[in-house]
Amino acid sequence: MKQITTRYLDGEIRVYRILRNVDGLLQPLAIYPVQSTNKIMNHTATHGPSRAAYTTRHSVACIGLGGTLLWTYNLEPRSTRRHGHIPSCMFSHDGDLLWIYRPDMMADRGPDLLVVLRVDNGEVIATAELDTSGHSAQFMQHPDGQHILFNVGEGQDGARIFRVKLSGSTINLHPYEWDDRCLIDLTLDGQLLMTVDHGQADVSFHSVASGEVMLSVPVTAFEPQSDGLSVDWSGGFLGSDLAIVTIMGETDGQEWYHFHKVDLRTGTPMGRFESHSRDVYDFEPLGDGTWITSDSAGNPVRHRIG
Protein backbone atom coordinates (compact mmCIF):
# COMPACT_ATOMS: atom_id res chain seq x y z
CA MET A 1 0.00 0.00 0.00
CA LYS A 2 1.10 3.56 -0.64
CA GLN A 3 2.86 4.88 2.47
CA ILE A 4 2.47 8.65 2.15
CA THR A 5 0.62 11.35 0.29
CA THR A 6 1.67 14.98 -0.05
CA ARG A 7 0.09 18.38 -0.52
CA TYR A 8 1.54 21.79 -1.35
CA LEU A 9 -0.47 24.20 0.81
CA ASP A 10 0.25 27.73 2.02
CA GLY A 11 3.87 27.65 0.87
CA GLU A 12 4.58 24.28 2.52
CA ILE A 13 5.05 20.72 1.33
CA ARG A 14 3.03 18.67 3.81
CA VAL A 15 3.58 14.93 4.16
CA TYR A 16 0.83 12.64 5.48
CA ARG A 17 1.44 9.03 6.51
CA ILE A 18 -1.20 6.53 5.39
CA LEU A 19 -1.77 4.06 8.23
CA ARG A 20 -3.75 0.91 7.64
CA ASN A 21 -6.68 1.63 9.94
CA VAL A 22 -6.74 5.44 10.03
CA ASP A 23 -9.54 7.10 8.06
CA GLY A 24 -10.99 10.60 7.92
CA LEU A 25 -8.92 13.80 7.99
CA LEU A 26 -5.20 12.97 7.87
CA GLN A 27 -2.71 14.85 10.02
CA PRO A 28 0.68 15.92 8.61
CA LEU A 29 3.65 13.81 9.63
CA ALA A 30 6.16 16.39 8.41
CA ILE A 31 6.06 19.94 7.04
CA TYR A 32 8.67 21.46 4.74
CA PRO A 33 8.48 25.24 4.31
CA VAL A 34 9.41 26.20 0.74
CA GLN A 35 11.54 29.32 0.35
CA SER A 36 11.10 30.06 -3.34
CA THR A 37 9.93 33.08 -5.27
CA ASN A 38 9.28 30.92 -8.34
CA LYS A 39 6.10 28.96 -8.96
CA ILE A 40 6.23 25.38 -7.62
CA MET A 41 5.39 23.03 -10.48
CA ASN A 42 5.78 19.61 -8.85
CA HIS A 43 6.77 18.19 -5.45
CA THR A 44 7.64 14.92 -3.73
CA ALA A 45 8.90 13.62 -0.36
CA THR A 46 10.70 10.59 1.03
CA HIS A 47 8.82 8.03 3.11
CA GLY A 48 11.12 8.71 6.11
CA PRO A 49 10.50 11.53 6.09
CA SER A 50 13.84 13.32 5.88
CA ARG A 51 13.78 15.04 2.50
CA ALA A 52 11.40 16.80 0.15
CA ALA A 53 12.00 18.08 -3.36
CA TYR A 54 10.23 20.44 -5.71
CA THR A 55 10.57 21.72 -9.24
CA THR A 56 10.21 25.14 -10.77
CA ARG A 57 10.50 25.83 -14.50
CA HIS A 58 14.24 26.34 -14.11
CA SER A 59 15.46 24.11 -11.27
CA VAL A 60 14.96 21.20 -8.88
CA ALA A 61 15.55 21.83 -5.18
CA CYS A 62 16.02 19.32 -2.35
CA ILE A 63 15.16 20.50 1.16
CA GLY A 64 15.34 19.06 4.68
CA LEU A 65 12.98 19.36 7.63
CA GLY A 66 12.54 23.00 8.50
CA GLY A 67 12.89 23.94 4.84
CA THR A 68 16.70 24.02 4.81
CA LEU A 69 17.94 24.06 1.21
CA LEU A 70 20.29 21.09 0.78
CA TRP A 71 21.12 21.47 -2.91
CA THR A 72 19.79 22.76 -6.21
CA TYR A 73 19.95 21.16 -9.64
CA ASN A 74 19.60 23.83 -12.32
CA LEU A 75 17.93 23.09 -15.63
CA GLU A 76 20.42 24.64 -17.99
CA PRO A 77 20.59 26.46 -20.23
CA ARG A 78 17.81 28.52 -18.71
CA SER A 79 14.75 28.49 -20.94
CA THR A 80 13.22 31.71 -22.23
CA ARG A 81 9.91 29.95 -22.95
CA ARG A 82 7.36 30.79 -20.26
CA HIS A 83 4.84 27.99 -20.83
CA GLY A 84 4.50 24.40 -21.97
CA HIS A 85 7.28 22.71 -19.99
CA ILE A 86 6.82 21.42 -16.43
CA PRO A 87 9.71 19.43 -14.89
CA SER A 88 8.70 16.51 -12.65
CA CYS A 89 10.47 14.55 -9.92
CA MET A 90 10.01 11.58 -7.60
CA PHE A 91 12.13 9.92 -4.93
CA SER A 92 13.05 6.26 -5.24
CA HIS A 93 11.37 3.87 -2.80
CA ASP A 94 14.37 3.89 -0.45
CA GLY A 95 14.78 7.67 -0.69
CA ASP A 96 18.38 7.46 -1.91
CA LEU A 97 17.70 8.66 -5.46
CA LEU A 98 15.70 11.42 -7.11
CA TRP A 99 14.28 10.77 -10.59
CA ILE A 100 13.79 13.89 -12.72
CA TYR A 101 12.00 14.37 -16.01
CA ARG A 102 13.34 17.30 -18.03
CA PRO A 103 10.94 18.51 -20.78
CA ASP A 104 13.88 20.02 -22.63
CA MET A 105 12.40 19.86 -26.11
CA MET A 106 9.54 22.18 -25.17
CA ALA A 107 11.96 24.34 -23.19
CA ASP A 108 14.12 24.69 -26.33
CA ARG A 109 17.12 23.10 -24.60
CA GLY A 110 17.49 19.93 -26.69
CA PRO A 111 16.05 16.42 -26.37
CA ASP A 112 13.95 15.40 -23.38
CA LEU A 113 15.97 13.77 -20.60
CA LEU A 114 15.41 11.38 -17.71
CA VAL A 115 17.98 12.07 -14.98
CA VAL A 116 18.81 10.30 -11.70
CA LEU A 117 20.46 12.24 -8.86
CA ARG A 118 22.01 11.06 -5.61
CA VAL A 119 19.88 12.54 -2.85
CA ASP A 120 22.63 13.11 -0.31
CA ASN A 121 24.54 15.56 -2.54
CA GLY A 122 22.60 16.13 -5.79
CA GLU A 123 25.22 14.37 -7.93
CA VAL A 124 24.04 13.19 -11.35
CA ILE A 125 24.59 9.43 -11.56
CA ALA A 126 22.63 8.54 -14.72
CA THR A 127 20.99 10.21 -17.72
CA ALA A 128 18.87 8.82 -20.56
CA GLU A 129 17.71 10.65 -23.67
CA LEU A 130 14.03 10.26 -24.54
CA ASP A 131 12.43 10.35 -27.98
CA THR A 132 9.59 12.51 -26.66
CA SER A 133 8.50 16.11 -26.88
CA GLY A 134 6.60 16.35 -23.62
CA HIS A 135 4.98 19.08 -21.59
CA SER A 136 5.13 17.19 -18.27
CA ALA A 137 5.41 13.69 -16.82
CA GLN A 138 3.82 11.56 -14.11
CA PHE A 139 5.91 9.08 -12.09
CA MET A 140 4.73 5.92 -10.29
CA GLN A 141 6.78 3.59 -8.11
CA HIS A 142 6.52 -0.10 -8.84
CA PRO A 143 6.08 -2.16 -5.64
CA ASP A 144 9.25 -4.16 -6.39
CA GLY A 145 11.19 -1.09 -5.24
CA GLN A 146 13.32 -1.17 -8.38
CA HIS A 147 11.21 -0.17 -11.36
CA ILE A 148 9.61 3.18 -12.11
CA LEU A 149 6.70 3.76 -14.48
CA PHE A 150 6.25 7.18 -15.98
CA ASN A 151 3.99 8.84 -18.49
CA VAL A 152 5.16 11.72 -20.69
CA GLY A 153 2.29 13.92 -21.87
CA GLU A 154 2.84 15.33 -25.36
CA GLY A 155 -0.31 17.41 -25.61
CA GLN A 156 -2.24 16.91 -28.84
CA ASP A 157 0.43 14.45 -30.02
CA GLY A 158 -0.54 11.89 -27.38
CA ALA A 159 1.44 10.32 -24.55
CA ARG A 160 4.29 7.88 -24.03
CA ILE A 161 4.59 5.38 -21.18
CA PHE A 162 7.89 3.89 -20.02
CA ARG A 163 9.05 1.29 -17.51
CA VAL A 164 12.58 2.03 -16.26
CA LYS A 165 15.17 0.68 -13.84
CA LEU A 166 18.56 1.97 -12.71
CA SER A 167 21.43 -0.51 -13.14
CA GLY A 168 24.63 1.03 -11.83
CA SER A 169 25.06 4.22 -13.83
CA THR A 170 22.74 3.11 -16.65
CA ILE A 171 19.01 3.69 -16.98
CA ASN A 172 17.37 0.65 -18.54
CA LEU A 173 14.53 2.21 -20.51
CA HIS A 174 11.59 0.11 -21.73
CA PRO A 175 9.07 2.09 -23.80
CA TYR A 176 5.62 0.57 -24.19
CA GLU A 177 4.49 0.38 -27.80
CA TRP A 178 1.64 2.86 -27.53
CA ASP A 179 1.82 6.59 -28.19
CA ASP A 180 -1.89 7.20 -27.70
CA ARG A 181 -2.57 5.98 -24.16
CA CYS A 182 -2.26 7.80 -20.82
CA LEU A 183 -1.12 6.08 -17.64
CA ILE A 184 -3.68 6.27 -14.84
CA ASP A 185 -2.72 3.77 -12.13
CA LEU A 186 -0.88 0.62 -11.10
CA THR A 187 -2.18 -2.23 -8.92
CA LEU A 188 -0.65 -2.85 -5.49
CA ASP A 189 0.93 -6.10 -6.70
CA GLY A 190 2.46 -4.35 -9.72
CA GLN A 191 0.87 -6.74 -12.22
CA LEU A 192 -1.65 -4.49 -13.98
CA LEU A 193 -1.58 -0.92 -15.21
CA MET A 194 -4.58 1.15 -16.20
CA THR A 195 -4.58 3.44 -19.24
CA VAL A 196 -7.08 5.71 -20.96
CA ASP A 197 -7.10 6.27 -24.72
CA HIS A 198 -5.73 9.73 -25.54
CA GLY A 199 -8.89 10.30 -27.56
CA GLN A 200 -10.85 9.26 -24.44
CA ALA A 201 -12.82 6.50 -26.17
CA ASP A 202 -11.98 3.64 -23.78
CA VAL A 203 -10.18 2.44 -20.67
CA SER A 204 -7.80 -0.53 -20.81
CA PHE A 205 -5.94 -2.73 -18.35
CA HIS A 206 -2.55 -4.14 -19.35
CA SER A 207 0.07 -6.56 -18.14
CA VAL A 208 2.91 -4.45 -16.72
CA ALA A 209 5.50 -6.97 -17.91
CA SER A 210 4.38 -7.25 -21.55
CA GLY A 211 1.96 -4.38 -22.14
CA GLU A 212 -0.63 -6.87 -23.39
CA VAL A 213 -4.23 -5.67 -23.08
CA MET A 214 -6.02 -7.91 -20.58
CA LEU A 215 -9.29 -5.97 -20.65
CA SER A 216 -10.68 -2.98 -22.52
CA VAL A 217 -14.01 -1.24 -21.87
CA PRO A 218 -15.44 1.36 -24.31
CA VAL A 219 -17.01 4.56 -23.04
CA THR A 220 -20.41 3.45 -24.37
CA ALA A 221 -20.51 0.60 -21.84
CA PHE A 222 -20.90 3.03 -18.93
CA GLU A 223 -23.81 5.31 -19.81
CA PRO A 224 -25.11 4.04 -23.17
CA GLN A 225 -28.19 6.26 -23.04
CA SER A 226 -26.05 9.39 -23.32
CA ASP A 227 -24.22 10.87 -26.30
CA GLY A 228 -20.94 12.75 -26.49
CA LEU A 229 -19.34 11.01 -23.51
CA SER A 230 -15.61 10.58 -22.88
CA VAL A 231 -13.40 8.67 -20.46
CA ASP A 232 -11.46 11.17 -18.37
CA TRP A 233 -7.78 10.81 -17.41
CA SER A 234 -8.52 10.05 -13.76
CA GLY A 235 -9.63 7.13 -11.62
CA GLY A 236 -7.60 4.08 -10.66
CA PHE A 237 -7.58 0.82 -8.72
CA LEU A 238 -9.61 0.46 -5.52
CA GLY A 239 -8.51 -3.18 -5.34
CA SER A 240 -6.92 -5.90 -7.44
CA ASP A 241 -10.35 -6.72 -8.93
CA LEU A 242 -12.03 -3.32 -8.78
CA ALA A 243 -11.26 -0.17 -10.76
CA ILE A 244 -12.84 3.29 -10.81
CA VAL A 245 -13.33 4.93 -14.22
CA THR A 246 -14.33 8.56 -14.73
CA ILE A 247 -16.94 9.41 -17.37
CA MET A 248 -17.37 13.00 -18.55
CA GLY A 249 -20.35 14.50 -20.32
CA GLU A 250 -22.31 17.67 -20.91
CA THR A 251 -26.00 18.45 -20.44
CA ASP A 252 -27.55 21.77 -21.46
CA GLY A 253 -24.11 23.35 -21.68
CA GLN A 254 -23.08 22.14 -18.21
CA GLU A 255 -20.18 19.69 -17.93
CA TRP A 256 -20.44 16.85 -15.43
CA TYR A 257 -18.52 13.77 -14.37
CA HIS A 258 -19.46 10.45 -12.81
CA PHE A 259 -17.21 7.84 -11.28
CA HIS A 260 -18.05 4.24 -12.22
CA LYS A 261 -16.97 0.90 -10.78
CA VAL A 262 -15.62 -1.86 -13.05
CA ASP A 263 -15.34 -5.52 -12.04
CA LEU A 264 -11.95 -6.52 -13.49
CA ARG A 265 -12.76 -10.24 -13.24
CA THR A 266 -15.64 -9.93 -15.71
CA GLY A 267 -14.99 -6.56 -17.36
CA THR A 268 -18.47 -5.46 -16.32
CA PRO A 269 -19.34 -1.89 -15.28
CA MET A 270 -21.08 -2.04 -11.88
CA GLY A 271 -22.70 1.39 -11.72
CA ARG A 272 -21.78 4.76 -10.30
CA PHE A 273 -19.48 5.28 -7.36
CA GLU A 274 -19.69 8.10 -4.80
CA SER A 275 -16.17 9.42 -4.30
CA HIS A 276 -16.90 12.54 -2.17
CA SER A 277 -14.37 14.36 -4.37
CA ARG A 278 -14.26 18.10 -4.95
CA ASP A 279 -13.52 17.75 -8.66
CA VAL A 280 -12.67 15.15 -11.28
CA TYR A 281 -8.99 14.95 -10.27
CA ASP A 282 -9.52 15.09 -6.51
CA PHE A 283 -9.46 11.30 -6.22
CA GLU A 284 -6.44 9.25 -5.13
CA PRO A 285 -7.19 5.50 -4.89
CA LEU A 286 -4.87 3.48 -2.65
CA GLY A 287 -5.65 0.00 -4.00
CA ASP A 288 -6.74 -1.43 -0.64
CA GLY A 289 -10.41 -0.45 -0.71
CA THR A 290 -9.68 3.12 0.41
CA TRP A 291 -9.12 6.42 -1.36
CA ILE A 292 -8.18 10.02 -0.60
CA THR A 293 -9.93 13.26 -1.51
CA SER A 294 -9.48 16.82 -0.19
CA ASP A 295 -11.53 18.96 2.16
CA SER A 296 -12.39 22.59 1.37
CA ALA A 297 -8.94 23.73 2.56
CA GLY A 298 -7.08 21.14 0.48
CA ASN A 299 -6.27 18.78 3.36
CA PRO A 300 -6.39 15.04 2.57
CA VAL A 301 -9.35 12.95 3.75
CA ARG A 302 -9.34 9.15 3.57
CA HIS A 303 -12.50 7.18 2.75
CA ARG A 304 -13.26 3.46 2.83
CA ILE A 305 -15.70 1.22 0.90
CA GLY A 306 -18.67 0.23 3.03
Rank of each mutant, 00 (worst) to 15 (best):
D279C: 12
G267H: 10
W291Y: 08
L264K: 07
D282R: 00
G271M: 09
G271Q: 11
R272K: 15
T266N: 09
D279V: 07
P285H: 05
G271E: 11
Y281P: 03
D288P: 01
L286D: 00
S275I: 02
G267Y: 13
V262I: 13
H260F: 15
W256S: 09
G267M: 08
V262F: 07
T266C: 12
D263V: 12
E255A: 10
E255Y: 13
M270N: 11
E274D: 15
L264F: 13
F259D: 10
G271H: 11
H260V: 13
E284Y: 09
G289Y: 04
V280D: 06
S275A: 15
S277I: 01
D288V: 01
D282T: 03
G271L: 10
S294V: 02
P269F: 14
T293M: 00
Y281G: 05
R272G: 15
T293N: 00
W256Y: 15
G267W: 13
D279I: 06
V262T: 07
D279N: 13
D279S: 13
H260A: 12
D279H: 14
T266M: 09
R272N: 15
K261Q: 14
S275M: 04
F259K: 09
T266V: 15
S277R: 01
L286H: 01
G287F: 00
M270I: 13
T268Q: 11
P285G: 06
Y257R: 06
F273V: 11
P285S: 07
E255M: 10
S294G: 03
K261A: 15
G271A: 09
T290Q: 05
S277D: 02
T290R: 06
T293P: 00
S277Y: 00
E284P: 01
M270H: 11
H258L: 11
F273L: 13
W256G: 10
F259E: 06
S294Q: 06
D279Y: 12
I292E: 02
L264R: 06
R265D: 14
L286T: 03
F283T: 00
E284G: 03
R265P: 06
W256K: 10
H276L: 06
R278G: 05
P285W: 03
W291S: 03
V280T: 11
T266W: 10
L264T: 12
F283L: 03
F273E: 09
H276W: 12
L286F: 02
H260Y: 15
F273G: 06
H276S: 11
H260R: 08
Y257D: 08
Y281S: 07
W256Q: 09
T268C: 11
G289S: 06
R272Y: 14
G287N: 02
G289F: 04
E284S: 07
G289H: 04
G287I: 00
G267A: 09
R278F: 01
W256A: 08
T290M: 02
H260N: 13
P285R: 03
D263R: 08
D263H: 08
K261C: 13
H258K: 12
P269K: 08
R265C: 15
G287A: 01
G267T: 10
R265A: 15
F259I: 04
T266E: 10
R272S: 15
E274W: 07
T293E: 01
D263M: 08
S275D: 04
G289T: 04
T268S: 10
W256P: 14
T290H: 05
H258V: 09
W256T: 14
R278Y: 02
